[in-house]
Structures are given as structure tokens and as C-alpha cells.
Design a protein around this nucleic acid. Structure first.
Length: 142
DNA sequence: GCCAACGTTGGC
DNA sequence: GCCAACGTTGGC
């Protein structure tokens, strides 16, 4: 299984809104960046991801799961843009802030630190486990 | 609100 | 194919 990070401004699409979609989930639409799209194309159903609040909050607040593979983005007629569906799995008990991430040497190579503008990012296994622990979750039970 | 970093566009 | 100009993102 692969791990990812989804970034969203809470004023546009918040963790609360994502959770309100429940098991059905929602398409991660609006991505107009090739790298981010390619990351979504590489996803498999069941892959897990972090849900990060940019602009406000600046912290990882939730765990999501890919519920549908990449498909055309219904918010545009442009065939270049695709997206996956994701659903909320659980809250992160202790949200992990960008400051916490930057302060942890294990996470120094994270895309979130190296290329903060990429909205859909891959997360390495060791990074995933470290952030789960920081957030009060056991990586083996997620 | 500012500005650095990055991606995209378009003229040549 | 290069690169300047421009637009957008996101941390501060």
C-alpha cells in the first residue's frame, strides 16, 4: 500500500466537510497540476493519506482512504484533468503541525517541506509511521 | 498583505 | 527549445 498527502484550504474544503461525506466520500476535484494529477493516477483503492489544512491551521488533521481510482474530474470538460475519490477514515487525535514536522529530522525530506506547493503528494512509509506516532495513532492499526 | 517559489504560457 | 512574463500557491 502507498501513502499520500492531500492538501486543502479549510475555507474551500475542510476536514469537517470531508467527514460529512462519510463512507461515500467525495472526488478530490479541482487539481490543475500535472504532478498532482499523476500522483492521483498512481493511487490504488485502499491507499491511505493524510488530510492537511493549508493557509489556516497548517496541520495534519485526518486520515483518508482512496475509495475510487482516478477518473475524469467532473468540474471541467478538459480531458487532461482527473481525480480520485477519497473518504474520511478518522481524526488525528493530536493534529501534527507543520512546525512539528519541520522540527523532526526524520521528516526533513518530506515533500510538504521540500515542495510546499504540490497539493497531492507521496508520503514514504517511514514518514507515514512517524507522523502517525506524533499524532497519537498506532501506524500498525490504521 | 507580502513575497519567494514554482508552474504555465507564448513569443521568438 | 529557450526564456521572459505572468499567475498561483502558501508560509510568514
Amino acid at each position: 500500500m502507498a501513502y499520500w498527502l492531500f492538501k486543502s484550504e479549510p475555507s474551500t474544503w475542510s476536514w469537517d466537510k470531508q467527514k460529512a461525506k462519510g463512507e461515500a466520500g467525495e472526488q478530490w476535484d479541482g487539481v490543475r497540476n500535472y504532478q498532482a494529477r499523476n500522483n492521483m493516477r498512481a493511487m490504488a483503492v485502499g491507499d491511505k493519506g493524510f488530510f492537511y489544512h493549508s493557509q489556516e491551521g497548517l496541520e495534519i488533521v485526518g486520515i483518508v482512504e482512496v475509495s475510487a481510482p482516478a477518473h475524469p474530474d467532473s468540474t471541467t470538460d478538459d480531458p487532461r484533468w482527473e481525480c480520485v475519490d477519497i473518504r474520511a477514515v478518522r481524526d488525528v487525535p493530536k493534529p501534527v503541525s507543520l512546525n512539528d514536522i519541520k522540527a523532526n529530522s526524520v521528516l526533513a525530506e518530506m515533500v510538504l517541506v521540500k515542495n510546499s506547493r504540490l497539493s497531492v503528494q507521496p508520503v514514504r512509509d517511514d514518514e507515514w509511521a512517524e507522523i502517525c506516532r506524533m499524532g497519537g495513532l498506532d501506524p500498525d492499526t490504521i
